[in-house]
Design a protein around this nucleic acid. Sequence first.
DNA 1: TTCCATGCAAAGGGTTTGCACTCTC
DNA 2: GAGAGTGCAAACCCTTTGCATGGAA
Lengths: 137, 137
Amino acid sequence: MNVFEHAEIADRLRAAGIPITLQRLAIANALFERPVHVTAEQLLRQVKASVPETSRATVYNSLKLFVDKGLLKELVVDPGHVVFDSNTEPHFHLYDIVTGNLTDVPADQMSVIGVPALPPGIEMEQIDVIVRVRPQR
Amino acid sequence: MNVFEHAEIADRLRAAGIPITLQRLAIANALFERPVHVTAEQLLRQVKASVPETSRATVYNSLKLFVDKGLLKELVVDPGHVVFDSNTEPHFHLYDIVTGNLTDVPADQMSVIGVPALPPGIEMEQIDVIVRVRPQR
DNA sequence: TTCCATGCAAAGGGTTTGCACTCTC
DNA sequence: GAGAGTGCAAACCCTTTGCATGGAA
């Protein structure tokens, strides 16, 4: 992959206040070229293919940074199984607890009604809706 | 705790097709005496206080068994942080991503509208709604 | 020069596994 | 005796951390 192909991705990082580095650009390319669901490990493999001088720690650092800046959503689908979702539009997820397959539910198929009362001094961060499914047994 | 005080809890296990053992009874008592949110580790400590001949592996085995039998819900709130919920009624959760505090949202405050289209051969298992909150910064 | 970002490898924490022992049926 | 259930400890997996290097401002 040519990391310079996608100037708009670099702009996206700058707009979020993230200093550009070679590794971050490679990671951002893998994530934002199209909406994806990936684990840290998958991403590391993928990024190393184009920029081998990328370490596991850097991938984790960058992922955390992108999440903090709102470019990415972190989905906890299973214990010890975090998936990063580069689609930050409101949507829900279908997670197959047997195969691990994760897909989006379009926003027009489901919605969440109502807002929970929050204790004082507490603010809402995000609402996760995960529909857990499995092959019929 | 006297594990023989609560005969109805033993009945609940039998009704679910779970053979009774001393450890399972102690674990079930800790879980079902009242609705609780606990981690495996908390549960282990708690159960050991009444039945010291209980191992970590047995706690994990029993938790998995109870979840399979529908007596318990598994909530994945954070990577490497699973909470077991002995309230199996439909309800949602408020999770403080900073303090780790987990509380219930009464069913009358929120609801999920709509059912996602499922691929053929796939059945729904459960819907998790986790409202992630944090102290105002 | 002063930061910040990075690579590497090791540590960490929670969960699972393997194996031998014990108990129940 | 056969099969489950259990205890113990080690193995495992993914994530985080520490530290020294390297590059940018």
